[in-house]
Amino acid sequence: MNPWYSVLISLFIVIGLVLIALIGVGSIGLNSLFGVYIPYVAFAVFIIGFIWRVVEWARAPVPFKIPTTGGQGKSLPWMKHEKLDSPFTTGQVIVRMLLEVFLFRSLFRNVKGELRGGPRLTFASSKWLWLFGILFHYSFLTIVLRHLRFFTEPVPQWVQLISSLDGFFEILVPTFFLTDAAFLLAATLLFLRRVVIPQVRYISLPNDYFPLLLILGIGISGILMRQVFHVDLEKVKELAIGLAAFSPTVPKELGSVFYVHLFLVSVLAAYIPWSKIMHAAGVFMSPTRNMANNNRAVRHINPWNYPVKVHTYEEYEDDFRAKMKEVGLPVDKE
């Protein structure tokens, strides 16, 4: 599919979603549909879908132990073993996985000081992918955690701490969160990267652009809500707590932009289980990463290991007995 077409189609879908929310709430007044029913359905789809996908993966057995080894395996006692890249024990595997999940270690491999056409030490461009990735995921995480303040009363200390750290530089009133900026920046960069780098553009599908644009839409609507339209956050909290307690009341005079934000979040939640965003769960189950390189020391069982037709020694000897005797090879049957 033509890349520009893919981008445009994704963009139109996201704009369409925004319009649906605007029209639905602003013109038709379906506040409770967009404020209560759709979020509930979306959240249910998210939870059930997520679990369903993970169970589906988990149901498929792991027939072979196939770790990708990234360093010296454990062998002779005096040979230096690289525990992180070639883990031998479960503990080492866990550390490898933690580094993978929290620091994107494999992506980081791309980052390397290099000599390029001279003695000048520079870095390969691929480090940007790691950097954008880290920035994107961590700001996303912080933002999600920060949103817990809408769902809890009293707000837990650590959520408050995150919010206050995040808004440390009180540049604007109301506080503009650092992570909001980082998030928008990272998402934009990830998007631009997809459009600008030809190889990446070549492999990208509409379902790569769509979630990025959707997430950008969520970020922008969120910021607009706070900084421009000054939505009444107390009322938002009222709705959120109601939703969390399963006794929702829809407050009046919540601006349309809030509903746009909420609707886009709902769409994202419902979309996640059916999309590549499931990599968040999948990374934990990847057999090349979550298995130990102790293949020869600890036997792995394949649940569907079945007997196969082999060529036995007896058949082999039957084929060649005379010749074997001729050259003095011992035979089992004379």
Partner: peptide, 23 residues
């Protein structure tokens, strides 16, 4: 094979086409 290999099933689903492998 989708039912017999978790690796295969997973690798069919979770690629985000980030392009890290491309070069």
């Amino acid at each position: 094979r989708l039912e017999k290999f978790r690796s295969f099933r997973l690798f069919m689903d979770i690629c985000v086409r980030c392009g890290a492998c491309a070069d």
